[in-house]
Structures are given as structure tokens and as C-alpha cells.
Amino acid sequence: MNLLAQQALARALARGARPVPAAEVLPAAPVPAPAPEPAPVPAPVAGGGHFDRVGYLEGRRHALEIVRASKVLLELKGGPKQLADRLRQCMQGKPADFARGVAEIIDLVEREVPSE
């Protein structure tokens, strides 16, 4: 028996010990917390199938590597369009989630890189 338990037992068995009502010892009843806000519902997946987050992240990573390797192409006239076409080619024949990750990077390139 540990020290605290021994002390508690000794107090309980001591002469003159008085019983303590449970209400004095137990904590007050908890106040019900307000209802939590509902969690955001993810957007439905096009095609109604399973969403593979790993495939999506792999597609983004692959597309980012291609963009980083083609920095010079981004500076040329018509380069961003060529890079977007190259990324679209790498999407062909890949799983839908991988292609979705690549498509997001294509959108970023088309939106953020000025095409001259």
C-alpha cells in the first residue's frame, strides 16, 4: 500500500473521526458545455470514389519538382504555357488523385506566373 493510502486509512480509523458526506468530497456536477460546432464537411470527390490523399500529395510533389527544374522555361515567352502542357502530359494515364494534385499546380502556374 502506498503512503497516501496508508495515511488515509489511518485517518479513517482514528478515534473521533467523523464521516464526511460525499457531496463535500466529490467535485460539483459539471456544467454542460455548449454544443460543439459541426466539423467542416469535405467537398465531395468528383467521380464519387475514394480520395487518396497520398496520391494527391505525390502528384503535387511531382509537379513541383518539374516546375523547379524548369525555372528557366518560366522566364521565356510562352514558357508558362509550355510548362503547363508538359504537366498535363505527365497527368495522362495516372490515377485521378495524382492528376488532381498536378492540376492544382497547373492552376497555380497559370494564375501566378505572368505569361507574356
Rank of each mutant, 00 (worst) to 15 (best):
A8W: 08
A8K: 07
A8F: 10
L9P: 01
A10Q: 11
A10V: 01
R11S: 12
A12T: 02
L13T: 08
L13V: 08
R15T: 09
R15S: 12
R15V: 08
G16P: 03
G16V: 03
G16S: 11
G16Q: 11
A17V: 01
A17H: 06
A17P: 03
A17K: 00
R18W: 11
P19D: 07
V20C: 11
A22D: 05
A23G: 09
E24F: 10
V25F: 06
V25N: 00
L26Y: 13
L26F: 13
P27W: 12
P27R: 14
P27V: 00
A28L: 15
A29Q: 09
V31G: 05
P32R: 13
P32G: 04
A33Q: 15
A33S: 15
P34G: 06
P34H: 08
A35Y: 08
A35K: 04
E37I: 04
E37G: 10
P38T: 09
P40D: 14
P40N: 09
V41D: 15
V41A: 14
V41C: 04
V41R: 15
P42K: 04
A43N: 07
A43R: 09
A43L: 10
V45S: 13
V45E: 14
A46Y: 06
A46M: 07
G47M: 06
G48V: 03
H50P: 08
F51D: 03
F51R: 01
F51Y: 14
D52L: 02
D52M: 02
D52K: 02
R53V: 09
R53E: 12
G55F: 09
G55V: 07
Y56S: 02
Y56N: 06
L57G: 05
E58L: 13
E58D: 15
G59S: 07
G59Q: 03
R60V: 12
R60K: 13
R61F: 01
R61T: 06
H62A: 15
A63C: 08
A63G: 04
A63R: 10
A63Q: 05
L64A: 14
E65S: 12
I66F: 13
I66C: 03
I66N: 05
V67N: 02
R68C: 02
R68S: 13
S70V: 05
L73T: 00
L74G: 00
L74F: 05
L74W: 07
L76W: 09
K77A: 08
G78S: 08
G78V: 04
G78C: 02
G79E: 10
G79D: 13
P80W: 04
P80R: 01
K81G: 11
K81Y: 06
Q82M: 15
Q82K: 15
Q82P: 07
L83G: 00
A84G: 11
D85R: 14
L87P: 01
L87E: 03
R88V: 08
R88N: 13
R88T: 12
Q89Y: 10
Q89T: 10
